[in-house]
Design a protein around this nucleic acid. Structure first.
Lengths: 133, 133, 133, 133
DNA sequence: GTGGTCTAGACCACT
DNA sequence: GTGGTCTAGACCACG
């Protein structure tokens, strides 16, 4: 799996890492139960500090996406329960921000739906995604 | 226009402010060419530091959403040109993040489109939005 | 407020700190909305590293006990909602461990209730506690 | 006797094991003087490392709950002497933690006593417990 | 070998 | 001034 980090970006490295890992899971490149590279190994590979990777891993574990034990971190089984209300609320707020920005910059609905389709197509490359339009 | 700032939030006040102002513009509560309250006045009204309001105004001006002259800031006419590539790229990235999160939490497409409809309905309360589905 | 840390203990410093702070809140020494000493100030006072205090503060913020913004950390208003199922489950497990240990060491029920009364008495020194027997 | 180990948990396996064994003793499933399965046998049964079982057994022996001779480990007769001051102190500290957490999450006393009763009822399934309310 | 914890020191963003 | 982030290096617990 390829992980691309932009150290010059204003978004924290650990946040970028979290999204890259989530992306890998959604794309099926990281399968359920599969163990992740060790904190130190991944840190060495992508050239960042061990603690930065550690923070990303632990935040994903708190979100329930990874699980950890003394052997390391591994992909957690997806919960079939309906997602937490808090998570839903956060997603709605992010969605509202996008829609406000899109609206103010006069981006047409067709463009947005096209983008959505493109992104889902990329995510669904190897595996069925849970969000189908 | 009502501006709600949550000083207890960890998101920067100037970001909240920018978001509230954009929302006001999209909803039509702030019309094109309309002048905004002075930096000092708004800062006093919502009880934040003058520099914070100033930063929000200037960032919106940089985005082309406000314009500034000796008399103060006012709402800029929306550009009919197609939006900046950079802005488009940023929106795409935010959209991808949402879709990844939605996918990993198994949120169905119908739910997402429903949320989108709800948000647009709220934004279009007084004025036609630019993003219509 | 007095904070006693045992650096020689096997329980992490940040955990000890979390309990000392919670204790302060329960005892009413830290009141709702009151701001806490800065990460660096407290670290200096009790002679530990800034990051250790930072971790304790952030974990308490995740638990909803503290809140944070750009000005620092402060005591969050207690939620009137019934506590999270997950928290209840954790408390039950800790309670079971204690009861097993007490049982295996033949500690009498009277002793346990006496201890409970003593602890609550100490906690209720200045303020009504939520757990009354 | 059933021993349930969660290898996906972040609590050390040897700790889980100690807790399961104590529970078995309290519930009377492991009786006084009864010999425990050999380190190798138990390790094979529950699929963990031999050293892990060994560590759990030895720690329980240090606590005086098991005894060890050339033939292996067996359940030690409960001491009629009043329990170690150190153990009492540890239990008090754990009890204080629970009471602080319960208090901060506004859990009512009735709830706590109900939980206690439920747990004791489960533990006393086969045998009289030493902690009766 | 794994992650957990702690320390130390640096630079940045926000107000 | 506040916390956020990142780096670097150390020791410990677990298996």
């Amino acid at each position: 799996m390829i992980i691309a980090i932009d150290v010059g970006s204003s978004t924290p490295i650990y946040t970028q890492l979290m999204y890259q890992l989530k992306k890998g899971i959604v794309k099926g490149e990281l399968k359920q139960g599969e163990s992740l590279p060790s904190v130190r190994a991944l840190a060495g590979d992508i050239g960042v500090n061990m603690h930065t990777v550690n923070k990303a891993y632990n935040l994903l574990a708190e979100e329930g996406i990874l699980q950890k034990n003394q052997k390391g971190f591994f992909v957690h089984a997806p919960e079939s329960e309906s997602p937490d209300t808090q998570i839903q609320q956060q997603l709605k707020e992010k969605l509202e921000e996008i829609l406000i920005d899109a609206s103010i910059h006069q981006i047409r609905a067709e463009t947005l739906t096209q983008w959505t389709a493109d992104i889902l197509k990329e995510l669904k490359g190897e595996k069925d995604s849970h969000v189908d339009l």
